[in-house]
């Protein structure tokens, strides 16, 4: 696969919004790799119903824009529908702008403000992408609307982009619990980024054994992209999760 263009995000204000970083670029590289474009072409053949692609936590919109602009190369399907969700309104405005500035070819539906996949109808998503807040921290920051004068907890949008609570897994665990509902039964697939401190092998095993959600779905799980080797340790990995 020839190198696909990286979306231009120069218009985004990175004081409040996550700046595209090594993790973002690892997602772009992985989703456009030979193995994943093959997987996605096979899963979403050109003559079948348009896949609905949801990115959770879009930030600047760099990943969703990449998928929307390069939909034909990545999916072999011209008419994908893309949808973004983030807890941060500034991130949602930025995402909309990023998509429209980068020659979208797939059809960008909208950005929504919300917590993970809570506003989505069951079975409505064919492909989900999540670069979560994955850094281990003592606790999770509050979400917009949870500000509390009594405890003095204030909203910190930048902390929400990286702080993942114990093991860096609090938000990601919640998302993994939701997969069984939001992903379509026949074609659903998710790509989730995990870092070494998230104990990714244990997370993958729990997914395989049906340890997430309420229905005990036994997912297929495979690591399909890695980066940032430190003393032999891979720091970041992209995991493909599907039925």
């Amino acid at each position: 696969m020839p190198l696909l263009p990286t979306p231009d995000t120069r218009h985004v204000d990175f004081d409040k919004i996550y700046e595209p970083s090594e993790d973002s670029y690892l997602l772009l590289d992985t989703l456009s790799s030979d193995s994943e474009t093959k997987f996605l072409h096979d899963r979403f053949p050109a003559q079948t119903a348009s896949p609905v692609v949801l990115e959770v936590g879009t930030g600047s919109g760099v990943v969703l824009s990449f998928l929307t602009t390069n939909s034909t190369a990545i999916f072999g399907h011209d008419s994908i529908l893309t949808l973004g969700i983030d807890v941060s309104m500034p991130a949602n405005l930025a995402t909309r702008e990023t998509v429209s500035r980068n020659n979208p070819r797939g059809f960008y539906l909208d950005s929504l403000t919300g917590n993970l996949t809570t506003p989505l109808r069951d079975g409505s998503v064919d492909m989900l992408v999540f670069n979560p807040p994955y850094v281990p921290t003592a606790e999770l920051p509050i979400l917009p609307g949870e500000e509390d004068e009594d405890t003095g907890r204030e909203l910190d949008l930048l902390a929400l982009t990286y702080a993942g609570g114990p093991d860096g897994m609090v938000t990601t665990d919640r998302l993994l619990d939701m997969l069984e509902r939001v992903l379509s039964e026949d074609r659903g697939v998710a790509y989730v980024l995990l870092c070494a401190q998230n104990k990714p092998e244990a997370v993958a095993e729990r997914l395989r054994l049906g340890g997430y959600g309420e229905k005990g779905v036994r997912w297929k799980v495979e690591k399909v992209g890695t980066s940032g080797k430190k003393a032999g340790w891979e720091v970041l990995g992209i995991w493909r999760i599907w039925r």
Partner: peptide, 18 residues
Amino acid sequence: IYNIHQGIANFLLPNHLV
């Protein structure tokens, strides 16, 4: 009620509904 502003709908819930 979920509000839509600037074309973006807000689905964040107040604490007591989460």
